[in-house]
Simulated assay, not measured.
Amino acid sequence: MKRVSIFLFAIFLTTIAFAQEPLVNGVDSVGLTVSDMDRSVDFFSKILTFEKTSDIEVAGEQYEHLEGIFGLRMRIVRMKLGEESIELTQYIAPEGRPIPADFRSNDRWFQHIAIIVSDMDKAYAWLRQNKVRHASSGPQLLPAWNKNAGGISAFYFKDPDGHALEILHFPAGKGNPKWQKSSDKLFLGIDHTAIVISDTDQSLKFYRDLLGFKVAGQSENYGVEQEHLNNVFGAHLHITAIRAASGPGIEFLEYLAPRDGRPMPADEKANDLIHWQTRLTTNDVDVAWKQLLAIDQFVSSGAVTLPDHTIGFSKGLLVRDPDGHVMELVQ
């Protein structure tokens, strides 16, 4: 898989003519590939209280061109928590590869969704009661000296396939004000999806300068709490939060230390279980295709027109960011 250098991004971004409006106007949902749909739906609905909103099965040439997988048949389930949605995809054919057993939180294919909870102690007790697999050693309260992150509590765990998930609790005065509203629910919604990256500046050239996201905040996190949250000894992260006009945010996790995280496998495919794809809405996929041509990091064969709106959009494309994370632009 090709990786785009900072130099090439700079050349491209100085010559492109940008529209007045951002290329991306919202984050619609976060998608992940699963091996057993019924098991995953049970997990997200019964443990995390997501609600299933659609359940479809598709096959055909247009979907093969969109996903870059020949001979596919997909079952796609959309689920909602609060105002945010995830999309689970099982490749009935062809099946992909499992998540590597030695997967670590600083590997650059890492991605998770941050699920906001109203009470961290109750949420952790519920997850323990349901025997979820830990990724963190336990919930971590980030230290008060960290101006931007102090007082936030977080815990990483795994779904049945081994995908990383996070529960997160914001103290008063931090996070989106909607998370501070009184609620009788334990699991409230999705604040963001986080991705491990190799270089913040390079990622900003893609997400901010090209796609039109805005930087919403930054912090530098380290110490024993961060190490135990990520389960990575010596973890020292530069974190950047970005947002579009609507939907959950995207969070960059750049590991300043240790720097031994593995890159996205060059042969990663949409049917592999390490695959996530974040759906972004745009006014014109053809315009997006033309603006993204210079970086040539497409998963799709082009801007693909679908036979109908069965999967929620009429035209779309999949493209990789500088570290190989997949964004799905749709209209």
Rank of each mutant, 00 (worst) to 15 (best):
A101P: 01
H163N: 15
Q180C: 02
F206Y: 12
R75Y: 07
R320N: 09
E57Q: 13
N231I: 04
K290C: 02
E225L: 06
H228I: 01
D199R: 03
S40E: 14
G60R: 12
D201I: 13
F233L: 14
D42E: 12
F43Q: 02
V27T: 14
I152S: 01
D107K: 07
T89H: 02
F187R: 09
L88E: 00
G316W: 00
T53H: 08
Q331W: 04
K315W: 03
H309N: 14
T193M: 09
K122I: 08
L66K: 03
V41A: 04
S105T: 14
I190H: 07
A241R: 12
Y124H: 13
F252H: 07
S85R: 15
F44S: 01
D38E: 13
E227Y: 03
Q291M: 15
Y255G: 05
T278R: 05
A144Y: 11
L273V: 03
Y207G: 02
Q180D: 05
L48E: 02
P265I: 04
G68M: 07
L256Q: 14
F213D: 01
G175N: 09
V319F: 03
F252K: 05
K205W: 11
D191H: 15
F9G: 05
S137Y: 13
Q226R: 07
I295M: 15
S54Q: 08
R39H: 08
N130C: 01
R320A: 07
P160A: 10
R104G: 00
F7V: 12
R108F: 07
E227Q: 14
H65S: 10
A270G: 01
R73E: 08
